[in-house]
Design a protein around this nucleic acid. Structure first.
Length: 483
RNA sequence: GGUCUCAUCGUCUAACGGUUAGGACACCAGGUUUUCAUCCUGGCAACUCGGGUUCGAUUCCCGAUGAGAUCACCA
């Protein structure tokens, strides 16, 4: 805390390449990133690939692409290197061996001669005795010399209570039951997370370790290891969980936690995702809801992070996304929706698309709404009479009334100029001549030319479609009712 | 079971002993857009419970309850 003012801040995100990172995990990257960026620090990415069994080919790139899409950039790490590299744990095995030797020399690490089955038996024994399982109770008296073929275990000192300060959670402590002899190096030669991350954070001069609060129960173990290694621990920060929408447990892939890529494909903006994730568990104390990334960087601090978990509420994300879409200027929006146009828009010119995009920008909740909102501009919509019968006002009209109204509309529109203001005038006259309520007349025309749930202002819609198309679609609608 | 953590509207949250407990999402109603969406206005709705401390507790302490996490040669 005190020396963080002098020492340059260095935070890190250390994912395991075991699959995509879902939205619940991203905050473990976001918060340390915001903290580093807001405090003139460095943000490091380190790949923790020491579990060969769970390694997934391609996962590393997937994770890095996710960070890039979100705009979470790193100063050191894979793909770009840095002076503390390598940043992939499987390439740092010699580091771990050196630190392990230090412990062996001090008599604080020993070879574990037991097979996994034997350890399981110890565990069962403890359980039968209704005691928590602690390996240190089964510590071998004369362990063999460690030759690398067996796991290397840390030998904890006298079990005691540890107390430490967490910038988010406040004072934390745990009793001696939390301390045990844990494995440093596995029998395959790879270090465990418990050992590797401590060594790496030290070697990479990480000042703040930020991770989920599932690590709290392990922290006393780390504290005792820091002591044995004679390392001053970095600031340890635990973040509350993001909970599944039903609120029953921490959000995980098994609860349907989506990858960030899925949200990207569903038309969520990175600004919205970042804003949403940050707002779960953090706020600046004001009533502001929408924050730009820069505002987040400027205002973020750990002491304003909530202690309790937050449920992942997609409805709120959707609302935020709509807000951010509306804030985009047209050029920017044009670029972002590039891959979201309906197939029918393939032949359309950019000018055409821009014009249509202007009309629907206020109606988009996600970029993926684009086809539903624009398809009828590019191709002939299918007549869907259920949209008439499902409409509160229109369902009261009988067939003859509908035909009359559509005929009147067709006639009026066939001799109107087609710029928006002329159309407005024509529509107003039509309202008078038919004596109908706008809610009925305009809804009917709107549906007849679009057959879509939402559409822009009627005069704009008609103007964009053009006289010929409007005439044709009204006729198609008339034919449908004439049958 | 042991250890640890958390606890304000349905949801995300503000409040750092004294407020009609504020905002946002969602929902409902009205209005604008002569339709739908957007937008505006209004409404509904919360301090888990029980003890203390205090002139006074949502706020501090203790307990209960509830919820979550964790007890791997996974991270």
């Amino acid at each position: 805390m005190t020396d963080s003012n002098q020492t340059p801040i260095r935070t890190r995100f250390a994912p395991s390449p075991t699959g995509y990172i879902h939205v619940g995990n991203v905050r473990a990257a976001l918060f340390p990133w915001l903290f580093a960026r807001g405090n003139n620090g460095k943000f490091i990415v380190r790949i923790e690939d020491t579990d060969q069994a769970r390694y997934v080919e391609g996962a590393q790139d997937l994770i890095l692409d996710t960070l890039k899409w979100l705009g979470i950039n790193w100063d050191e790490g894979p793909q770009i290197g840095g002076e503390y590299g390598p940043y992939i744990q499987s390439q740092r095995v010699d580091h771990y061996k050196q630190w392990a030797q230090k412990l062996i020399d001090k008599g604080l690490a020993y070879a574990d001669p037991y097979t996994p089955e034997q350890v399981d038996a110890f565990r069962a024994e403890s359980k039968a005795a209704k005691q928590p399982f602690l390996f240190r109770n089964f510590r071998p008296e004369n362990p063999p010399v460690w030759d690398g073929s067996m796991p290397l275990r840390f030998k904890v000192g006298e079990p005691k209570r540890y107390t430490w300060h967490d910038p988010v959670m406040g004072e934390l402590s745990a009793g001696p039951e939390a301390l045990d002899d844990f494995i440093l190096i596995k029998s395959d030669g790879m270090p465990t997370y418990n050992f590797a991350h401590i060594v790496d954070d030290q070697d990479m001069e990480i000042t703040h370790v930020v991770r989920g609060l599932e690590y709290i129960p392990s922290i006393p173990k780390y504290l005792s290891l820091y002591e044995a290694l004679e390392i001053t621990p970095p600031v340890l920060v635990c973040l509350p969980h993001i909970m599944a929408p039903d609120g029953k447990k921490k959000l995980g892939k098994r609860d349907g936690a989506k990858s960030v890529t899925e949200y990207k494909n569903e038309g969520i903006l990175p600004e919205a995702m970042l804003n949403f994730l940050a707002s779960m568990g953090w706020n600046d104390g004001t009533e502001q809801e929408l924050f730009t990334v820069q505002e987040l960087i400027d205002k973020f601090s750990f002491d304003r992070v909530q202690k309790s978990g937050a449920r992942f509420d997609e409805t709120r994300l959707l609302w935020m996304n709509g807000q951010w879409i509306r804030r985009l200027d047209l050029d920017d929006l044009m670029a972002r929706v590039d891959s979201f146009w309906p197939e029918s828009a393939e032949q359309a010119s950019d000018d055409e698309k821009r014009q249509i995009l202007t009309l629907v920008q206020d109606r988009l909740k996600t970029l993926a709404d684009l086809p539903m909102l624009t398809d009828y501009f590019f191709s002939e919509p299918n007549v869907d009479l259920s949209m008439i019968s499902g409409n509160k006002q229109l369902s009261k009209l009988d067939r003859a009334e509908i035909v009359n109204l559509l005929t009147a509309a067709k006639t009026a529109l066939s001799c109107s100029a087609f710029d928006p203001s002329s159309l407005q005038a024509t529509l107003n006259q039509l309202l008078e001549s038919t004596g109908q309520k706008p809610g009925i007349l305009f809804s009917l025309i709107r549906l007849a030319v679009s057959w879509a749930p939402f559409s822009p202002a009627l005069n704009d819609t008609l103007s964009t479609l053009g006289q010929e198309v409007v005439a044709r679609r009204l006729q198609v609608a008339l034919d449908a009712f004439a049958e």
